[in-house]
Amino acid sequence: MEVFLKVENITKQFAGHTALDDVSLEVPRGCVYGLLGPNGAGKTTLIRIINHITAPDKGRVWFNGHPLSPADVANIGYLPEERGLYKTMKVGEQALYFAQLKGLSKAEATARLKKWFVKFGIEGWWNKKVSELSKGMAQKVQFIVTVLHEPQLLIFDEPFSGFDPINANLLKNEILELRDKGATVIFSTHNMASVEEVCDHITLINKSKNILSGSLDEVRRSHGGNIFEVDFRGNKESLVGALAGLPCGLLDESLIADEDKENRSERALKIHIERDEDVRSVVEVINNTVQLRTFREVIPSMNDIFIQAVAKHSAK
């Protein structure tokens, strides 16, 4: 794993409160990195530091192997959560303006913009005023402006807000495509379902501290309590009896009761297996007792992990 962006022991204080307290993280090259956390946790401050908008009190940021310098900003595309356009300006002119501020020449920017406008099916908007656009339309323009200069690092803060599911999906695919072309993406959102869909790695920040980092799979597995769901056909009591002799706990009998309908012989059961126990021996017992249909590990959702981790950290 090659690290593209490294945040090293960053501390940032504002008058009276600490926004970031000794935060470190490593963003691998070419991945989508989820930056998560409750409101006011310090995410935006961290993003602003990476963008060279504010400077940290302590700590350093490494960008592509060298300490972050103001010149690197040209290689970053940032879509802030709070975003706006000049209302009285025409869409095309405005997009050109932002592109030029990112260092593109007028001709180059025009050519690239035309391509993107066609791709998003908004060619007809070039001469429209921003005030005529809906929120979702304006968001599309902003997305284009963010990625137009083909930066190595993209930072999206709540990119899907204001989008209908179809356009959100379009955008999600664009983000994944940009990643596949080699861009590194930092993705900040409160929508955990979209985190599961697009993120490769995550970091969870709570109360100015990094409380959880890692690849999405790793994080989810490590938060799984070794819980397995068993779907079976057959007699419940005999299975429960057979499992009683094994070092595993029966978790959710209600699940069985719910499924135990007159005309259905399929049942489900949630069991917890001790971490060091051999799963195969449990499966064998089940298989010998009832007709096993599925046996799978229950992986907690990012939503659950988020709530659990934040509650646990806040309680400390």
Partner: peptide, 16 residues
């Protein structure tokens, strides 16, 4: 206007 329309937020990542 730039501040209240949040254009500023978009701008600051490209210019000081």
């Amino acid at each position: 206007e730039e501040k209240s329309s949040k254009v500023m937020e978009v701008m600051v990542s490209s210019v000081k």
